[in-house]
């Protein structure tokens, strides 16, 4: 009975699957390979395993040729990341996306004129020292034109800076600003889903008073109002964030 696991050809000691797989890859020493090959020829069961392993490689190759549709949320986030990357590059070289210009013309003129400041700011943020090195030039650049670019990386803020900063970011963006890893975004969305109005306008990795946190902005009761929450626990891929600070900002240009 095959169900009992007994070999059907009891006079043969079967090869294990590892050995047959090694045989197929020519990994066995010559003498062992020879006897294994002879065995496979003589033993229908081992021949079946041999054939099945060959077929498995073909099946994997077939499957490997197929694309897998990227989930919509992953694709949207990736698009946003690439757009942000293009904006950052254009801020340094003065070349602008036609799509960006059409969508948000008001954003680009100040950006071009503030290009020098933007370069300083990008350089500072790029190496992550804007807050650490607190030198006067860096501070001036950050303060005179903080909205020259969209936030990137992990932004350092004090609690008092959160509301004005969020206001500036969102007043300068016609689309939601969703930054951070997919895990952090998922965590932010999970938090948002439990709020009365779960429309996410902003997700931004930040250090708030030195603590790694996630600043999120949700649509408030009116299009002008944004509910801002600072969550901890989202950055490490945690599934739930805890709000440590919240406030509401009103956008002036909506």
């Amino acid at each position: 009975m095959t169900e009992s696991g007994l070999p059907t050809s009891e006079h043969l000691e079967h090869l294990d699957t590892d050995t047959i797989a090694d045989l197929l890859e020519n990994l066995l020493p010559a003498t062992e390979a020879h006897s294994a090959r002879e065995h496979v020829k003589a033993c229908p069961d081992c021949q079946l395993t041999y054939d099945a392993l060959l077929e498995l490689s073909e099946d994997l190759a077939d499957e490997g040729r197929a694309d897998i549709p990227m989930p919509v949320d992953v694709a949207e986030h990736l698009d946003a990341v690439i757009r942000a990357e293009a904006v950052m590059r254009s801020s340094t070289v003065g070349v602008h996306s036609l799509a960006q210009i059409r969508e948000e013309p008001h954003r680009h003129m100040p950006k071009l004129f503030g290009a020098a400041a933007a370069v300083v700011l990008i350089a500072a943020i790029g190496v992550g020292v804007v807050m650490a090195t607190k030198d006067r030039a860096g501070e001036n650049a950050a303060n005179t034109n903080p909205t020259a670019i969209q936030p990137t990386g992990v932004v350092s803020l004090s609690t008092a800076q959160i509301a004005p900063q969020v206001q500036k970011w969102l007043e300068n963006s016609s689309t939601p600003l969703l930054n951070g890893s997919a895990a952090e975004l998922t965590c932010a969305r999970t938090f948002a889903a439990a709020r009365p109005n779960p429309v996410v306008r902003l997700v931004q990795p930040a250090k708030v008073d030195g603590t790694r946190a996630t600043v999120i902005g949700l649509q408030g009761g009116s299009p002008r109002d944004i509910e801002v929450y600072v969550l901890t626990g989202c950055d490490g891929g945690g599934s739930a964030g805890t709000s440590i600070y919240d406030t509401t900002v009103t956008l002036r240009n909506r």
Binding site: T2, H14, L15, T17, P44, D45, C46, L48, T49, A52
Partner: peptide, 10 residues
């Protein structure tokens, strides 16, 4: 049936 048997070998 014999594939099942071969599986038990593996």
């Amino acid at each position: 049936p014999s594939k099942t048997a071969a599986e038990s070998v593996g």
